[in-house]
Write a protein that binds this DNA or RNA. Structure first.
Length: 446
DNA sequence: TCTGGGGTCCTAGGACCC
DNA sequence: TCTGGGGTCCTAGGACCC
């Protein structure tokens, strides 16, 4: 049995590829997708990267280049991307014994026990996903998650690999030839050659802070990194760094997760489309965020025991008066009831809102989340007859979720969230929600 | 000269991920 | 004028307890 044969599948330029999947006219054209409020570039097709458009570049600084070079520009369309992601995951998941969704555009795949070589299996998966969804993916395979990530990175960088890179299994694999040969054997040499090609900043688990500190010490590649003394890594980079160090050498430290873990905190926050100055508008926005957070909480079957609300002005604008403040309030008993969570969030807002500022952003966070199933039933509440009220609130929320699942987000919503929403996001160039809203289905006819 | 030795809980801050 | 929105984990240090 070959333990630890892991693949990382990563969608290429995912958001840009989603836009392209429904609009063949975009083939070969540079495509970029903007963040919420159309603020900055968060996804680029290959053609857009070749134009030198950097990740995270503010839209207003690129506007001329976009126009000059015929770049197709989209507001982000998470309804579309989330649904396309589910289709990609379902397609790949049907072909492997286990799949762990790691992010909207990435999954770890367990390839152990499949007939055929890892390379041919990876290519079959790549083709199946492309056929079913139109989304191109790259796949890296290795004995640990960190090595699979690194292999994936190289598979994307080096076009000659055709989107797939399989690393040799390492000397650490018990009972394998590599172990007998030691690090100097052919597999050990191949591994070293590979690690030399992985820049230190590209290693999963090494962020900008550590990367810069390591470069100062002359550690430029993954190979340099694994040659550092174990104790130094443990001391300077804590256990996380040590896991990275071990995983790069073929020792698995980060296991596959069967099911996504329930969130311990849930955040809903947005920058406003234009500055908010009036309390009424702020109350609508906070209502909206609190009720979105409550919806996410119910979706994972949780109850929150506290809600944190915060507001802030635009820290980018020098010379304008700045203000930011947060307040947290207990939810007792813990609840997922949107009306109750909104009520408490608005209470908190009343305490922190100061007139005379141009607010840029607000948010709501749910904390102290426990599983609904394990929630304690308060004897006191039952005796008070409050249990009945709780049950009715629960039915109301279930009805709300049901209607919105069936007919689309926000078919039903709390009146306190407002209707006109002058503070709402800028989304000037959103594509249709092709796959999740009936009226926006793509049209195909002769 | 001497100034114990653990535990637990909480918070803030720093690092990372997408 | 204009710069996203989510998350997690680890550690150090303080408060408090015996």
């Amino acid at each position: 049995m070959s333990a630890g044969l892991l693949a990382l599948m990563d969608c290429n330029n995912f958001y840009a590829s989603c836009e392209r999947a429904f609009d063949p006219g975009l083939a070969g054209r540079p495509v970029v997708v903007l963040s919420n409020n159309d603020g900055c570039v968060i996804a680029r097709s290959k053609e857009a990267k070749d134009l030198g458009i950097p990740m995270g570049a503010p839209e207003f600084k690129c506007r001329q280049l976009f126009a000059r070079s015929g770049v197709a520009v989209f507001s982000s369309n998470y309804a579309l991307y989330g649904d396309m992601s589910a289709r990609v995951m379902a397609t790949a998941g049907a072909m492997v014994p286990r799949l762990e969704v790691y992010s909207i555009d990435e999954a770890f795949l367990d390839l152990a026990g499949l007939p055929g070589s890892p390379d041919s299996n990876s290519r079959l998966i790549m083709e199946a996903v492309k056929r079913a969804t139109g989304i191109p993916v790259s796949i890296g395979v290795g004995p640990t998650k960190t090595l699979a990530k690194a292999a994936n990175r190289l598979a994307k960088k080096d076009p000659s690999l055709g989107g797939v890179l399989v690393l040799p299994e390492g000397p650490e694999e018990p009972g394998r030839a590599g172990r007998l040969e030691g690090p100097g054997g052919p597999e050990g040499q191949a591994r070293e050659a590979f690690l030399t090609r992985v820049e230190i900043g590209d290693v999963w688990g090494v962020g900008p802070r550590y990367a810069s500190r390591l470069r100062d010490l002359g550690v430029l590649t993954a190979l340099d990194f694994i040659r550092l003394p174990r104790d130094w890594v443990r001391k300077k980079m804590t256990v996380g760094g040590l896991h990275t160090w071990l995983e790069l050498q073929g020792t698995p430290c980060i296991p596959m997760e069967a099911a996504p873990k329930p969130k311990k905190s849930i955040v809903s926050s947005r920058s406003f489309g234009r500055p908010v100055t009036r309390l009424e508008d702020m109350r609508e926005a906070v209502s909206q965020y609190a009720s979105r957070a409550a919806g996410k909480l119910r979706a994972q079957g949780g109850l929150a025991s506290a809600v944190l609300v915060w507001v802030q002005t635009n820290t980018f604008i020098a010379g304008e008066p700045q203000y930011s403040q947060a307040r947290s309030l207990a939810l007792n008993p813990a609840t997922s009831n949107a009306t109750e969570i909104v009520r408490r969030a608005l209470e908190g807002l009343t305490g922190i809102f100061r007139p005379g500022f141009r607010y840029k952003k607000a948010g709501v966070m749910l904390l102290g989340i426990e599983a609904e199933a394990s929630a304690q039933l308060s004897l006191l509440r039952q005796m008070d007859g409050l249990a009945e009220r709780d049950a009715r609130a629960g039915q109301l929320m279930a009805a709300l979720d049901h209607v919105n699942a069936k007919w689309g987000r926000e078919t039903l919503f709390l009146a306190s969230c407002g209707v006109a929403r002058p503070w709402g996001m800028r989304q000037a160039r959103r594509s249709p929600r092709y796959t999740t809203v009936w009226s926006e289905l793509p049209v195909a006819y002769a």
